Computed example of a mutant assay.
Amino acid sequence: MDQRISFITLAVSDLEATRAFYLDGLGWQAELFVPGEVLMIKAGEHLVLSLWSESGFEAEVGPIRRGEGIVPLTLAHNVATEAEVDAVLDLARRAGADPVHPGELRDWGGYTGYFADPDGFRWEIATNLGEIGQLVLP
């Protein structure tokens, strides 16, 4: 098996709100949108973010675990500078992200902040000048 990820699939409760957030709010473009079913967005050279309605997700994958707290998963978008981190967090706020945690310097040397999409999935916006951080920049 090749060492790569092809799709990241998230189950969403309101596909139209998700579409509005990512496409209208963040300015991303859909590769595929089937109303009421799925939104697919090219998120990298060989990576697709697939956002499925909960009912379709459960029909194919199985029951979703529900409960209190944050989903134990984050998605990350790395940029080159602290100013870019702040700009993306501002864009997310204008798009309706809630909550938005402002950028801050981290003990490990990076600068990161977080926002939540309409289903509460947390996006980390980060700059990391270390070798691993440079690996993921375009």
Rank of each mutant, 00 (worst) to 15 (best):
A92R: 02
Y22L: 02
E104R: 09
A11W: 01
R19K: 14
P138K: 00
W52S: 08
E131L: 09
A83M: 00
K42C: 08
F7V: 15
E60K: 01
D14P: 01
E58D: 07
E58G: 13
V48M: 12
G25C: 13
L47E: 03
V34S: 00
N78G: 13
D2N: 15
A97I: 13
S55H: 12
E60S: 05
E54W: 01
V100M: 09
V100S: 09
L10Q: 10
T9E: 06
V12Q: 04
L51D: 13
L23H: 09
P118H: 08
G109H: 10
R94P: 00
A83G: 07
W123R: 07
A17K: 07
I132V: 09
V79D: 11
N128T: 13
V136C: 12
G27D: 03
V88A: 07
R65I: 13
P118D: 06
P118R: 09
R93A: 11
T18M: 04
L39D: 06
H101M: 14
D2E: 14
A59L: 05
T74H: 06
P63C: 07
A126F: 09
A43Y: 00
Y111K: 10
I132T: 12
L10A: 11
Q3N: 12
G120A: 12
G110F: 08
L91N: 06
R4Y: 11
G36A: 06
S50N: 08
G103N: 13
V34N: 04
L137M: 08
I8C: 13
A20K: 04
R66K: 13
W28Y: 14
F57P: 03
E82G: 15
L49G: 05
R93P: 01
R65V: 11
W108S: 14
E31T: 12
L73A: 11
H101L: 15
A83K: 02
M1V: 15
L39C: 08
R66L: 10
V61M: 05
A126Y: 10
V71S: 14
L49S: 09
G110D: 14
T127L: 09
R94L: 01
G113D: 07
I70C: 13
V38Q: 05
L23F: 10
E124H: 02
R4W: 06
I125A: 11
I125P: 09
V12I: 05
L47W: 02
A126T: 15
Q134G: 14
W108Y: 15
W123V: 15
S6K: 12
E54Y: 04
F57C: 02
D86G: 15
